[in-house]
Design a binder for these strands. Structure first.
Length: 483
DNA sequence: ATTAGGG
DNA sequence: CCCTAAT
């Protein structure tokens, strides 16, 4: 229970601990529903909506993946793939070998239209319906905690610089066994721990003033809103778009090492809090340093540097000791489905003495920010399909490229393909050592460069059907003379 | 809706 | 990948 001293993490000022309770339910499918309650009387939460079922069942399956949650982010834009223009050019393509990443040669593609129409209408419907509930619903019983601050990463969670400054949570996870319809992953967050907060005040400081100082420090963190981080095996999962399934969170084994962190967003914090001069603006004559755990390289830099660059993130579980300790403690797996009462993420009940309460900057403008799409590295076969298509169509007709080679890949938009080509060209130019990710066969990269140079030259008359033969790109680049 | 580029 | 300006 929340009163358990051991869970109050006495090491830190119990600012974020209290009698409030938090219950978090994360679901595995499209719309995670998480609810927070700040009161003992837990409220019911995480009711799932039928949408999820529908989307899962109706999703047309050209996806080989067993159980891939419908691309919720992909639905962000309703992609209209079918256009009259396309059908005008389509016949022209018929002569090509339609090598698509998903199916090799596609003999014919009649019938595609009807199929697609159906799919699209379905998707559209789903989209509309989902849109209403897409945002994670985080209910607060008293409005103390904004839903956004919990469910959304402020700035596309990638650059979570201040991450290390976060609080950690003990988690108890439980997963329903099978993943039929009830395959939800349940978490119980026992407690959140406050980030290391170093406060330096004069000896003459009064207790009341100290409280105020602490409050301001906390406020400065909360002001920017909080975002939640997820740790698996002590490693931070930075990709917000991965599914629990992909991340392995749904795996029972991993629930053991699952952790949450609260991270200040540090949208705009008092610059003076850096390290040196006591901020004259502070109402109290103290300086507050927010630092990471002692011994950590990035000291005193939370406020000043946090926004610029993410600290060299732990790669292989080399987590700062403090953090390690945080995430590894108190984690048990529930064997029954009972959601026990959880410990609180308490907002300091600033019932402070008559003092200027800084009106917390609650403008969570990211309320409407949409989740970033999940990262889907192009597979070699996809690259090949792309190269093939570009060789035939050129570099200025991404929509056609899309439809030629990626029509069935809903998650690849023509913009994506264009971007991928861009990176491919770049990749092909750099040395193999500098390349990352799944290595692309040099042969393909050569074709990329060849096609690239070819189509660059033919920009002017690019629309002219480039005579019968495919490109004559046999010798543009001389193998690996790229450095 | 697409293209083309910068971020 | 995202965001935008320009088509």
């Amino acid at each position: 229970m929340s009163k358990n001293p051991t869970e109050l993490h006495a090491k830190y000022p119990a600012m974020l601990n209290g009698d409030n309770n938090v219950k978090l339910s994360l679901f595995r499918d499209p719309i995670p529903n998480a609810s927070f309650s700040r009161h003992r009387n837990d409220i019911e939460l995480g009711s799932r909506d039928d949408d999820e079922n529908i989307s899962r069942c109706n999703k047309p399956s050209n996806e080989v993946k067993v159980f891939r949650p419908s691309p919720r982010i992909g639905d962000r834009r309703i992609r209209k793939l079918l256009t009259s223009k396309y059908w005008k050019v389509a016949p022209k393509l018929r002569d090509f070998e339609h090598y698509r990443y998903d199916g090799g040669i596609k003999p014919i593609y009649h019938k595609r239209k009807t199929l697609y129409s159906r799919e699209r209408s379905q998707r559209d419907t789903l989209y509309k319906r989902r849109k209403l509930v897409d945002r994670s619903s985080v209910v607060t019983s008293d409005g103390g905690f904004s839903g956004e601050s919990v469910s959304n990463s402020p700035d596309n969670g990638d650059k979570s610089g201040p991450a290390e400054n976060g609080v950690s949570a003990s988690v108890i996870g439980h997963q329903a066994s099978s993943h039929s319809k009830e395959s939800h992953v349940k978490f119980r967050i026992k407690s959140f721990r406050v980030p290391e907060l170093f406060i330096e005040v004069p000896e003459t400081e009064t207790v009341g003033s100290l409280k105020r100082t602490v409050m301001e420090a906390v406020n400065s963190i909360l002001r920017g809103g909080l975002s939640v981080g997820v740790l698996v095996h002590g490693k931070k999962v930075r990709d917000d778009n991965r599914t629990l399934l992909q991340t392995g969170i749904s795996c029972k084994d991993n629930l053991d090492s699952l952790g949450f962190t609260l991270e200040p967003s540090l949208v705009q914090t008092p610059p003076s809090l850096g390290s040196g001069d006591p901020p004259p603006s502070l109402s109290c004559e103290t300086s507050v340093l927010l630092t990471r755990s002692p011994g950590t390289p990035v000291l005193d830099s939370v406020m000043s540097d946090a926004l610029s660059e993410p600290p060299p993130l732990t790669h292989s579980g080399s987590l700062p000791e403090s953090n390690h300790e945080l995430v590894s403690s108190h984690i048990d797996i529930l064997t029954n489905k009972t959601m026990l009462e959880s410990q609180a993420l308490a907002i300091p009940e600033m019932s402070m003495e008559p003092l200027s309460v800084v009106p917390v900057n609650q403008k969570t403008k990211r309320s409407e920010l949409v989740q970033r799409r999940t990262r889907r590295p192009f597979s070699v076969s996809e690259v090949e399909a792309l190269v093939q298509a570009v060789e035939e169509l050129g570099t200025g007709r991404w929509r056609d490229v899309k439809l030629l080679a990626f029509e069935n890949a809903d998650h690849r938009t023509y913009v994506d393909l264009k971007d991928k080509w861009k990176t491919l060209v770049h990749t092909a130019k750099i040395s193999p050592q500098q390349r990352r990710g799944e290595p692309v066969p040099q042969e393909l990269l050569d074709r990329v460069l060849a096609a690239h140079s070819y189509w660059c030259q033919h920009q002017a008359k690019q629309h002219g059907k480039h005579q019968g033969g495919i490109l004559k790109i046999t010798e543009a680049p001389t193998d690996k003379t790229w450095s």
